Simulated scan of single mutants.
Amino acid sequence: MLLIFFNVLKQTRDSGSPPNIAFLLLILMSALQSTLLGLRWGYNLEAVRYVSPIVAALVSPLVYIGVSEFVRGRRSMGAKRLLLHLIPAMAIFIMLLFWPLGIDLTLVAIFLGYAVATLRLTWRGEDVLGYTSMEDIVPVYRAIILAAGALLFSAVVDTLVYLAFLWDRSGYAATLLSFGDLIVLLILGGAAAAASRGNVTEAGPEPEPEAKPEADDAAGETLELVNTMMRDRKLYRDANLNLDRLARKSLIPARQISQAVNTVVGQNVSQYVNSFRIAEACDLLKNTEKSITEIMFDVGFQTKSNFNREFRRITGITPKDWRVAQARK
């Protein structure tokens, strides 16, 4: 019921961009799988064991496909790639017919493989989410890491279940599946719902990279160009600004911008952009009578939670406390 609620909440929430179909399916598959687990271990419905492994084999690919959208932007997935991600479920179906004893370990391999593949997509940090709006990057990145962790935990649970059956401890297996997999499914559903709130844009053409390699002086030059764009054109006010859009507006490759910001400033691009937003917010709090909510929207934030989080990260206090402190000076 909770997973269905996540799905309804996501579909009724207007994020300004098309939904992440893979994550919506992930929530529904998690709800289906939790129902199947209840029927199998709560009501001893044996027929479920022919369906549950196939559903389980579909969950991991959906995590990877959903994460890929945040990393690579919205683009249609070719039939060959889609078929590739259906291979695990097809393999489980064949094993159900000819080698059911190998299903548990195969599922473990599937969970581990997709968990590693998902973590590899995001190993460079938050800047890999180049098509996700700067404001959404932090919660989306955390949700992705949580989802990958859930896949790893699921692999551990299935390994313990396999050992329980191997050692003739089927009672322990039922407990592990009932509670372990249920926890995993709730984490996956919640992570998918949280990540799906992120605003992702279509993948656009990447500007041509410079011929020379990135060096410290070149990084400084790149950052100065971006700084000029931010100051003169106030790009940070764009609530949907992401690394890809910043790259196209500045005609500098996204990877080059990310490297320059990381090297010179020691921050990721999201933190760098938000520093401009908070700087203007401080100026408006000090020199205008605008409400904090008005200022939040003016500088490019869309939610109070993100605005307050970034304001505290940079200034150490809340916007309200900062305004009071400035008024006393």
Rank of each mutant, 00 (worst) to 15 (best):
D14V: 15
P18A: 13
P18D: 13
I21K: 02
L25G: 02
L26G: 01
I27A: 00
I27E: 09
L28C: 07
S30H: 07
Q33A: 09
L37N: 05
R40K: 12
L45C: 06
L45M: 08
A47P: 02
V48E: 06
V51H: 03
L58D: 08
P61V: 15
P61L: 15
I65T: 15
I65F: 13
S68K: 10
V71D: 02
G73W: 10
R75G: 12
S76N: 08
A79I: 10
K80E: 06
R81W: 08
R81L: 14
P88Y: 11
M90T: 05
M95I: 10
L96E: 06
W99C: 05
G102Y: 00
I103F: 01
V108C: 01
L112N: 01
G113H: 11
Y114W: 08
V116W: 13
T118D: 10
R120N: 14
W123H: 11
R124Y: 13
G125N: 01
D127W: 06
D127Q: 07
V128T: 15
V128Q: 07
D136E: 12
Y141D: 11
Y141H: 12
R142D: 08
L146N: 08
A150N: 07
L152I: 10
F153G: 11
F153K: 09
V156L: 14
V156R: 03
V161F: 02
L163R: 03
F165H: 03
S170L: 04
G171Y: 01
Y172P: 06
T175L: 14
S178H: 05
F179H: 06
D181C: 02
D181T: 02
L185A: 00
L188P: 00
S196L: 05
R197K: 14
T201P: 05
A203E: 15
A203T: 12
E208H: 00
P209D: 15
P209C: 12
T222L: 01
L225D: 10
V226H: 09
T228R: 15
L235Y: 07
N240C: 04
R245V: 13
S250E: 00
I252M: 01
A254K: 00
R255Y: 12
S258H: 02
V264W: 09
V265G: 00
S270G: 14
Y272L: 04
R277P: 12
E280S: 04
C282G: 07
L284H: 03
K290S: 14
S291D: 14
S291F: 10
G300K: 02
F301A: 04
K304E: 12
S305D: 14
S305L: 08
N308H: 06
F311L: 08
F311V: 13
R312L: 04
R313K: 12
G316D: 08
I317G: 07
K320E: 15
D321E: 12
R323S: 10
Q326T: 04
K329A: 03
